Every structure is written in C-alpha cells, then in structure tokens.
Simulated scan of single mutants.
Amino acid sequence: MSDVLPTATSAPVSRDWTAHAVRRIEADYNRSADTHLIPVDLPALADIALYLKDESSHPTGSLKHRLARSLFLYALCNGWIGEGMTIIEASSGSTAVSEAYFARMLKLPFIAVVPRSTAPEKIQAIEFYGGRCHFVDRPGDAYAASEQLARDLGGHYMDQFTYAERATDWRGNNNIAESIFAQMSREPCPTPRWIVCGAGTGGTSATIGRFARYNLHDTQVCVADPEASVFHRHWADRTVQTTSEAPSRIEGIGRARVEPSFIPGVIDRMIAVPDVASIAAARVLSRRLGRRVGGSTGTNLWACALLATEMAQASERGSIVSILCDHGDRYASSYFNDDWLSAQGFDVGPYERRMDAFFADGRLPA
C-alpha cells in the first residue's frame, strides 16, 4: 500500500472555485433520479424474493457513478483539487468513466491509468467524456504509475482504493444502503435477509455493512468475490495480504492486494465465484431481463442463487437484495462474444445450465 500523501497544490485552492465546483456537482445530483429496484421473478421460491438495485441507470452507466461523485466532493472539500488541475485515477474502467464525467463537468484534464486488458468499450467511454488513458501491462502497476503521473504533472491522484470507504457518508445522505432500505420499506419482507455486493475497492460493502449496523438492521452482508481475488482469503485469514494468482477476468471486482478501503469486519460472509460462473450467470440474467448486464452482476447473482438455495433448504422466508452494477453492452466484445470466451478457455454452457436450473427449480445444482 502506498504511503504517498495526496498531491497538494503549490498555493491554497481558491474557495470561490471550490464553491463553484461543489455547486456544479450538487446541481447534477439534483437533476438525477434514484436508481430503480428491480424484482427478479423466482417462481419456484414463493417465500424468497430477489431484487436488483439497478446502478446501470446512472448517467455514466454504473455503480461507480456514486463513488466518483463522493471522491470528487471529498477531494474538493479537503482542498486537494484546484482549478485546472489534472485528475489521475487507477481503475479497471468504470470508475474512470465516471470520474471523466465529473472532470469534464469541472473543466479539469483527466487521465485514467488502466490495464491494457480493459474492455475497449470502457476505453471509448472514458475518451467520450474527454479523458485519456495511460496503459499498464499489469493491474498492479497502476498504483505507482498514477502516483508518478500526479507528481510529474502537478496533478491529483484520486486513489479510489484508499478513499472509497471514507469519502462516502455511510450514515445516510442517500447513499446506496439508505436508498435500498427506503425502497424495500413497502415490500413483503422489507428488511433484507442478505445484501450481496462485490468488492473492488471495498467501499460499497463498507457503506452497506456500516449502515445496517448503525440503523440496527438484522440484514447480513455477503460479498461475492472472484476466486482469484485476495479479498475472500483476507476475510478468512487477516494475515493474508496479497495473492499471486492470475488476475480475474471479471472487471471491476477482485484485487491481488488488500486495498485500504476493504473493511472485512463489516462483512458477514464471502462467497468465492469462478470467473466462468460469473460470466454464465450474467448471460442467463441478461436473457431473462431482456438486456445485458456485466460480469460483476453475474458474480453477485451466483452468490444470490447459493444463498437462496440455502434459505429454501432451511425453510426460511425473506428477501435478498443485490446490485446490477453496470451495462453489459460494455462487454459486447468479451463476455457476450463466443470467440472471446473460446480464446479464454471458458466453457459457459454447464454453468448456464446450472443457473437456468436455479430459476426453474429454486435450487442451484451442486
């Protein structure tokens, strides 16, 4: 983990400019509606309800829109960003898309430091919002490259992996947890038995877990994590800090090192999901919804199916809420491309059949 402090400007940041920037971001927020909570039909499970919080409907198309807004406000109010300053971020793509949106709003140059394997659709979205990309060969190289760019350009490295859990107001302020519980209030089982999310920075799981505890909800938090990720290993054994496995192909979640924003103490359970199962689940859900969803949503769905199977076997009644993280159109050239799947050695057929069986019978076959 880096101990480099946020880049400071050579002179105090103009309070007038900061006030202008905060107003621009808050005005944009006021123009935006909350994201929809989608019920997912489970005809074989009369006592279990599944919902997806559709974060793909944000202006930049993903859950990371919330994070980018919070990171910008946090940096602005800390005096870390000044007029004309270049913003740099290490990202697998979606956070960079959202930060490019806010940087353009404030007329700030933006550079995304991304792995070369990042989906081309995400690269195009970053560039659409006026950002440019600096490519690294290995995901782990993005941290140092971002710090160096910030030093060289006199810019600010946003560092989502350090600041995600503290930039978001987890007590309220319409964060994702507050929104979920408010939208669930009139459902048959208004307090979810489980909320399932992934972990890229760990900010979302930290926000949901803290909010549930602060408001005395019985809801438990489950993090669905790629098998290659270190997070589930660290949760089980806090001495484990890194993994040398090949990186997961599920963009946006799972890391090779434990990020500063990952708070294991607020997580009740972690489920490791193979990449091929995540992709298969995303494809099955896309067919059922009539629109594509991304791979991390598939990771979440696989964990939801396991939890629902366990609840049904225990004759439990309750609700499960998870997150539809981003548009699947961003992965048209990968997860939804049979040639790409074949090149990666992914045989999604058996896993798709297992997920189809879950929807048909209410049990995820072993």
Rank of each mutant, 00 (worst) to 15 (best):
residue 5 L to S: 13
residue 6 P to Q: 09
residue 7 T to L: 02
residue 8 A to H: 03
residue 10 S to G: 14
residue 12 P to D: 01
residue 13 V to R: 14
residue 16 D to G: 02
residue 18 T to P: 03
residue 22 V to G: 00
residue 31 R to V: 01
residue 32 S to R: 15
residue 32 S to T: 15
residue 33 A to T: 08
residue 37 L to G: 06
residue 41 D to W: 10
residue 41 D to I: 09
residue 46 A to W: 01
residue 49 A to E: 11
residue 54 D to I: 02
residue 56 S to Q: 01
residue 57 S to I: 07
residue 61 G to H: 07
residue 69 R to L: 02
residue 71 L to I: 12
residue 72 F to Q: 03
residue 79 G to A: 00
residue 95 T to C: 09
residue 97 V to Y: 04
residue 98 S to F: 12
residue 100 A to D: 02
residue 102 F to D: 03
residue 104 R to C: 05
residue 106 L to P: 09
residue 109 P to A: 09
residue 109 P to W: 05
residue 112 A to P: 03
residue 116 R to K: 13
residue 119 A to S: 14
residue 120 P to T: 14
residue 127 E to I: 07
residue 129 Y to A: 03
residue 132 R to P: 03
residue 134 H to K: 00
residue 134 H to A: 12
residue 134 H to E: 05
residue 140 G to F: 03
residue 140 G to Y: 04
residue 142 A to K: 12
residue 142 A to W: 01
residue 144 A to Q: 14
residue 149 L to E: 05
residue 149 L to S: 04
residue 150 A to N: 11
residue 156 H to S: 13
residue 156 H to L: 10
residue 157 Y to M: 03
residue 162 T to A: 14
residue 162 T to N: 06
residue 164 A to V: 14
residue 165 E to L: 11
residue 168 T to E: 14
residue 169 D to I: 09
residue 170 W to N: 11
residue 173 N to R: 13
residue 176 I to M: 13
residue 179 S to E: 09
residue 179 S to N: 10
residue 182 A to K: 13
residue 187 E to C: 09
residue 190 P to E: 08
residue 192 P to K: 06
residue 192 P to I: 08
residue 198 G to F: 15
residue 199 A to W: 04
residue 203 G to V: 03
residue 203 G to R: 09
residue 203 G to S: 06
residue 210 R to A: 15
residue 211 F to Q: 00
residue 214 Y to L: 06
residue 215 N to W: 15
residue 216 L to Q: 14
residue 216 L to R: 15
residue 221 V to P: 03
residue 225 D to P: 01
residue 226 P to N: 08
residue 226 P to L: 09
residue 230 V to F: 10
residue 235 W to C: 07
residue 239 T to G: 06
residue 240 V to A: 00
residue 244 S to A: 14
residue 244 S to V: 07
residue 247 P to D: 14
residue 249 R to I: 15
residue 252 G to Q: 06
residue 253 I to P: 05
residue 254 G to C: 12
residue 255 R to P: 02
residue 255 R to I: 04
residue 256 A to F: 05
residue 256 A to L: 12
residue 260 P to G: 09
residue 268 D to K: 06
residue 272 A to C: 02
residue 272 A to Q: 04
residue 276 V to N: 11
residue 278 S to N: 02
residue 278 S to L: 04
residue 280 A to Q: 00
residue 284 V to Y: 03
residue 288 R to M: 05
residue 289 L to E: 03
residue 289 L to V: 04
residue 290 G to Q: 12
residue 294 G to R: 08
residue 295 G to Y: 08
residue 297 T to S: 09
residue 297 T to F: 07
residue 298 G to P: 08
residue 302 W to F: 12
residue 302 W to N: 10
residue 303 A to Y: 10
residue 304 C to V: 13
residue 304 C to W: 09
residue 307 L to H: 10
residue 311 M to L: 14
residue 311 M to Y: 13
residue 313 Q to C: 05
residue 324 L to S: 03
residue 325 C to V: 02
residue 325 C to F: 07
residue 334 S to W: 11
residue 338 D to E: 13
residue 339 D to W: 01
residue 340 W to P: 01
residue 340 W to L: 02
residue 347 D to E: 12
residue 350 P to C: 06
residue 351 Y to H: 15
residue 353 R to H: 10
residue 364 L to G: 03
